[in-house]
Nucleic acid binder design. Structure first.
Lengths: 236, 236
DNA sequence: TCAATAGTGTCTTTCAGACACTATGCT
DNA sequence: AGCATAGTGTCTGAAAGACACTATTGA
């Protein structure tokens, strides 16, 4: 048989195949707390439960799981681009009652001020991470969120990725507080500032922010944080 | 409709679904060189080309993509357990001529002395990494191998994972040479030894190896390398 | 005794941690 | 002037880099 003949007779529907989805944990800062965007499932299975945004890959529309993730992100937040990173692929015969399933998990970091639109057709909400355990989420999404959070936590110790969560202008103290929230512990101002400043990850905007007492210089991201790795982690 | 009714009428074959596979780059040391196990494709597509071991998930047999990877590893090397790590999931409508496809990539590190059996039904070979570019591999497998190699390289800078490639007993100089091969540069004996010894990643066996001149102490892995991360990378 | 490989002593450099200190602007 | 927050000076310690040095064996 030639390859052409083979491809002609090949039909994926002759085989048992897994269900194949993409899920994204979209993280954002609201009132100095980490939130993740959740959508209410309006169909079975897990109807009425909160779930991560995502779903089946649209074979005609998506060029990769990453572009499926971008599409979802666009639909839910109106953002054309944002930091998006693949976390891992999780699979099991049990995690979806419809059958053997596999999901490619991503996480995104967005500045909440850039979020333009939230799909009105589906009920969705920004849920603080601290509230998650009180909800009985769909599928294994609580586990997925934990995996995404762990990745974010790890990245905060050896990169400056959390800058992606910040508004256009921010003070270094504000940035430090975000890191502290993600890492769950306090940081030394000196070490923290040395690190981001000497790596040129932020640049002064010339503006400052008066929050009552001494005004703090405002900084903006230089974008270096997307690729740069520090060669020592923050603490152990 | 109840969930039960929904599940009863749900049929995955009503939808367009991607092809879904698992591939593994199985790395091993042969004659002081990194090799990866390749199998000859005996069917279309890419018939007659070399490819990474792997293939479709067996829904009845595999509990996850990881167990599909373990099954493949067992079939190709006879090894029940070995270091196995998920690298990433790669997808595209073009990478497989049969249609939209997705593969979950793993890499494994094996001690070549523990490899018991190589499937006799499929032609397979250990290919040195340096030879790969001379071959026209199936699918995007050359890219997948590059991704797996990059991961191994990164891990060698901040963990002692390459210990998994070593035989039961080895000298520190031999281990250092393996790191040097993976990293593509020379290391300082002092720094290298301090690092693995103070982390208790290896333990003396009491034996030594005479290779002509001063005998070198033999060490064995303590297994610590699987989880331990150094808090500074080797060089930049 | 010498060649060759194994393994160490020790100085430098880098950067995080600790923490006391100074700076600024509002009230 | 006082106070709260912004931001710095400077010492310590841990671990990597450099590189000269010593140790052990067989021939």
């Amino acid at each position: 048989m030639t390859e052409e003949e083979f491809l002609k007779q090949y039909n994926i529907h002759d085989f048992d195949v897994p269900l194949c989805t993409v899920d994204i944990a979209i993280f954002s800062l609201i009132n100095n707390e980490l939130h993740t965007l959740m959508v209410l499932r309006e169909e079975h299975p897990f109807k009425g439960k909160w779930a991560l945004p995502g779903g089946f890959i649209h074979l005609g529309e998506d060029d990769s799981t990453e572009s499926a993730a971008h599409r979802t992100l666009r639909q839910k937040t109106g953002m054309k681009s944002a930091y998006l990173e693949q976390v891992k692929t999780v699979s099991s015969p049990k995690r979806d009652p419809r059958g053997w399933s596999l999901t490619v998990l991503y996480f995104a970091l967005v500045d909440i001020n850039q979020v333009k639109r939230i799909d009105t057709d589906k009920k969705s909400t920004w849920m603080p991470l601290s509230d998650l355990k009180q909800h009985d989420l769909a599928f294994d999404h609580i586990e997925l969120i934990r995996s995404a959070t762990n990745r974010l936590h790890a990245k905060a110790t050896y990169t400056a990725l959390p800058i992606e969560l910040m508004p256009t202008e921010f003070t270094l103290t504000e940035l430090q507080h975000v890191f502290e929230m993600i890492l769950g512990r306090e940081l030394q101002a000196k070490a923290f500032r040395n690190r981001v400043l000497s790596a040129n990850m932020v640049a002064e905007t010339g503006n400052s922010k008066i929050s009552g007492k001494r005004p703090a210089k405002l900084f903006k991201s230089t974008g270096v944080n997307r690729e740069m790795f520090f060669n020592r982690p923050l603490m152990e």
